[in-house]
């Protein structure tokens, strides 16, 4: 693996993303919504010293949860499958690059623009809050943006898994949208249903919540944003009491890292070793 090649491939991928109208639409709408959230709930920002950044960021968490997984899953799912379907993948591989370089370059080249879109949205929203006299800890806001990057990375990995197993981009998108629904709504719904039906305890609910990368992101963001972890109810309090605040954040970050590394490795190995051929 040559870093040089990975960067060249990533650069091409990034340029293509920047020109992709869906990606531009995504970036613009994410940013606009992020800024709008401030104006929708003016009361929250008008009472300074009482509610500032924490509240705004909490609304942003919701926005991130809807947007970031969707774009990461979809772009990830068409990354390899799209080029395979176009036939450009094989042509690319006839040049002196390895499949590993192609894979890594694509991952990087897609992740970076997504992360920068997130940064743009958070930044614009932050300027809005600051200009209106919002207080709050700026560092926590940045940390939430960084957590969103992690979320993007983990779901992009999942998207790549979809991609390496799909021959057609349209099919891959379908699977990606289903996964998005699963991660954002259906998964949590399942856990809630199970928790009620089987009368699960605090520990089980916590363990189940850890299965979902989006849920993990949300819990981590709430913990990072403020001392408001009690808002997470008995499960949150149990977790913080048992593992300590740093401990819980460490666990959550580890889960997100696992959600990034394992699917990445699966997709990578499948693409570059197990299914070596591109016919």
């Amino acid at each position: 693996m040559e870093i040089r090649n990975i960067l060249i491939l990533a650069g091409k991928e990034t340029r293509e993303s920047l020109k992709n109208r869906w990606f531009v639409l995504y970036t613009v709408s994410f940013s606009v919504l992020a800024v709008l959230i401030l104006s929708i709930a003016p009361g929250r920002n008008e009472i300074t010293g009482i509610s500032g950044y924490g509240r705004t960021a909490a609304s942003l968490i919701n926005l991130v949860l809807l947007f970031v997984p969707l774009i990461a899953l979809i772009t990830g799912s068409i990354s390899i499958s799209g080029e395979r379907e176009n036939g450009t993948l094989q042509y690319l591989l006839s040049h002196p690059v390895t499949k590993a370089e192609v894979f890594a370059g694509k991952f990087l080249g897609i992740l970076v623009p997504i992360c920068f879109s997130i940064s743009l949205g958070f930044g614009l929203a932050g300027i809005g809050v600051a200009l209106r006299g919002g207080s709050g800890d700026a560092a926590e806001f940045v940390l939430t943006a960084l957590l969103s990057w992690l979320l993007a990375a983990s779901l992009l990995s999942v998207g790549f898994v979809v991609s390496v197993f799909s021959r057609r981009a349209s099919k891959a998108i379908g699977v990606a949208v289903f996964l998005w629904l699963l991660i954002i709504v259906l998964g949590d719904l399942g856990i809630m249903g199970t928790a009620v039906a089987m009368d699960l305890g605090i520990k089980q609910v916590f363990a189940l919540a850890l299965l979902n990368p989006a849920e993990v992101f949300k819990i981590a963001s709430v913990l990072v944003l403020s001392p408001r972890f009690e808002i997470l109810g008995p499960v949150g309090v149990y977790a913080v009491r048992t593992f300590g605040r740093e401990g819980v954040i460490f666990i959550l970050l580890s889960v997100m890292a696992v959600w990034t590394v394992i699917p990445f490795a699966c997709a990578f190995l499948t693409f570059s070793i197990w299914r070596r051929e591109e016919s």
Partner: peptide, 21 residues
């Protein structure tokens, strides 16, 4: 050494397909 071998070859595929750039 597929990469080294490929670097010695210029290849023209039957149906040339390109990125839309």
């Amino acid at each position: 050494h597929p990469k080294e071998a490929k670097s010695l070859i210029g290849y023209l595929p039957q149906e040339p397909l390109f990125y839309d750039m």
